[in-house]
Amino acid sequence: MTTCDYCDQDAVYHDVQIKNGVHKTQNLCKQHATEAGFLLDSADLSIVLNIGESDLPSKSTAVACSDCGMTIAQYKEKSLLGCPTCYETFKNKLKHIIAEVQDNHLQHIGRAPSSEGVDVNRHLEVLRLLKKLDKAVNQEEYEQAATLRDQIRELHDGGELHEN
């Protein structure tokens, strides 16, 4: 059985999210799933396949961030948000908090990432290749690992994308 992402207990909550083409899996034990805002009171909730940001809404996730499961109560414990999407999820509540800590400023006027520079596709391609590289190294397929490493290097040096 898969173990929890945060401890050694068996995971009873399994979540797969696909956002911008990136797969993110989450495996949680009963305690951590409850803490994350997923109420696991029946066995049929043991597998939740959550695709995209708003598919399969349920009462357990309605008050939690759709991406990371954070609740506003959890935010208040540490004053830390769970993920970038939390800013959208808790927009109204955060507006007051941000105004208070930022001297009533609510509009960013500083530097923004250069739109020409940011290449999300390249970012995702690097992520995909890194995962493959990890797998290849674990399986001791060093020849393939070397090829993947060269491809990643080329992406960073501004080379063409490689299709596999």
Binding site: L81, L106, Q107, V118, D119, L155, H156
Partner: peptide
């Protein structure tokens, strides 16, 4: 930022774990 995509919002700027850094 030439290589990776930062968490960024037009209104709030760079998104950080704590709103005191946003």
């Amino acid at each position: 930022e030439e290589v990776i995509a930062y968490a960024f919002d037009e209104q709030l700027g760079f998104l950080t774990a704590c709103p005191t850094n946003v």
